[in-house]
Design a binder for these strands. Structure first.
Lengths: 209, 209, 209, 209
DNA sequence: AATGAATGAGGATTCATTCAT
DNA sequence: AATGAATGAATCCTCATTCAT
């Protein structure tokens, strides 16, 4: 009696469904995810999914895109805002990345995109165009400027960007993949801090000796 | 010992099948890979697969394990062999990694393990126990020794390992996922070299100033 | 009696719905017709259909019966009224049939009944009892009378009825089925006239020679 | 033990499946036919259907086309062969039609094509191009020749063809649709004979008076 | 009376797996 | 050892129907 058979909440449904779908897709990947399962977690019936998404594929795309899109610009704005020396910007950037990784399902989405990039080239493209390109643009921009100022050692700025970001990506994936498989827990915040220190002491020409 | 007269080359079959399976699994992931497809590429019939593997899962496991296992020990041996200064070992290690990544399907396997870690926790475990643990052990071992010798700056050796290896993993995944999605090509060898230089100049206390 | 103030025109709804339903059923057949589609064409919501019809089946039945029923009696009355010689009645009858076929959706209904007779034996029964039996009764009655008067040649009156009506049914179906498939257009009026002439010249014993 | 789980009879399967499918499609129409049902009647599993037909639609098309195609040429050959007077050809033609209608599932196929012509315009087209056009060509050809010879009264040969064939079509549909709904049984052979007589006595200019 | 969001049973389709050949 | 025709469980998706609003 208390719980009517139907609940009409057209406003929130898409969000709720996406949230449930994110969980299931992240756990199982696209193909192994069952719509039944997603529907159950979202507290709706299977049919309801089709009121909001035409397709399993469309739902997957929506989940990934919705989760990918919002994050990147926030980072850029935060970083580009201040005209600080590289020695201060880089740690900020890494800290922000690790913080985002703990607050949002970024790791899971990355895992999904990697795993399904073969079946959904489009998603890899979205990730590339909207995340990777921007992120690399930000980093290489900062690095080039710093190189011109004599703050950062010469070298291909793109590869320098790998040197800076790679360990964070590795940490992210470690938490998603290996830690659940018995790996020792990893503190992303600490990693960010130590890596920033370590990397910088090398990227900088002048160092406290 | 046996000399069957009309025998088909039963010896090579498993290898051929695994090779074909690796291709397909790497392209599609576990669930989306069709045995029909694998059989066709291996030049055998679908039924034949079951003469050598009880299961699709077993085939997947075999593919991953066979491809993972051989590589790791080779690296360890090569690295541990010489008692060189860290400044020489680290570049060697990174160069070896990048070389292995271009010679073997390592990138694809990593992609598979990441994507299917949810459905095959066992594979993540294998990767963890046989690759990650060993790799980290090697690295942290080298780093700790170098720290004791005063070659490497203090800090959690495990995190230092992330600093060293992360960019290579990132490069690997970039080639698998983003480059096919329109990303600019990446030269892993160059990345390894520049990253080694960059990272070391920071990891080392004494530097050419 | 009641004078509801904000009442929607509940009076016309069933008719409007039936009209919309006829279109859709005629186009797609029973099973392939979607209530969504019918509702849209009727300008109401899906739920509203259920205020007037308990069921998709009931709606179908209503459509068919409503369209079938009214027509037959009109014909009978028109024909039976006058005690004319057969040579005049028959052309009248055929002309009336062809006229009805162009004015009403008779052809479509016939098509529907034929196509769904397997799934709705009841409709075939309605058609049989209310149309076919009556139509045959009228025709055989006229024919028998004319035979007794020596106007029409001997022979099973029922089969004579087929000889008279069959071509009109064929014309009807031709327009519904083959003409849309690229068949040359057919003028039902002309067919009725020529067929009447032709058929009569044979059915009559005395002919203008 | 007697009946093995599998039967390998790739040769006959398509034929058997088509036969079973014809039954079910004829009974229910396209949409209401269940593949489960077809498979059961064909004595195979549902999956087997897909070894031979990509689709429910393709199966439907195959059934209709296979049943339509063979019949028409037989008729033409039989009719065109002899250069007999029209008074002998017409009864032959009608007799042949009625005979074919009792021997083959022609009536059912006609019913299917009529019922599904809206959903499968292609089938109406096949029927039009391969049956109707040919049949009309034969008939109008014969009639025109007979008109030139003075055997048949003037008038649009196409409409004359309706006069001749319509009653047979009506008889066919009567047997499929109305007879199962309680209609008095119809003897197609008798109908063919009487109709031929009746129609001819009118189509011919010279008659025994 | 009217709506349309929500439901869930039903059916087409896929594909790993089996087994007669 | 090898085949590939046959199987049937699993799952996506549709759509008639219901019910809170």
């Amino acid at each position: 009696m208390k719980q009517p058979k139907f609940q009409r909440r057209a406003e929130d449904r898409p969000r709720e469904i996406c949230a449930a779908a994110l969980e299931v897709f992240a756990e199982k990947g696209f193909a192994a995810a069952k719509l039944d399962d997603i529907a159950r977690r979202a507290g709706v019936s299977k049919g309801t999914l089709y009121l909001y998404f035409t397709d399993k594929e469309e739902l997957f795309r929506a989940v990934v895109k919705n989760t990918i899109a919002p994050n990147i610009d926030a980072v850029r704005d935060a970083i580009m805002a201040a005209d600080l020396p590289f020695a201060q910007l880089a740690p900020m950037f890494l800290a922000r990345m690790s913080e985002m990784a703990t607050r949002t399902p970024l790791g899971r989405v990355v895992k999904m995109v990697i795993g399904e990039s073969g079946n959904f080239p489009e998603l890899a493209k979205v990730w590339h165009d909207q995340i990777a390109v921007k992120a690399f643009a930000i980093m290489t921009g900062l690095i080039e400027r710093a190189q011109q100022r004599g703050e950062v050692r010469p070298g291909n700025p793109r590869y320098h960007a790998f040197s800076l970001m790679g360990p964070m990506l590795m940490g992210l994936l470690y938490r998603e993949v290996l830690q659940p498989a018995g790996g020792e827990p990893l503190d992303l915040q600490l990693l960010a801090r130590q890596h920033a220190e370590t990397a910088l002491a090398g990227l900088l020409l002048e160092k406290a000796s």
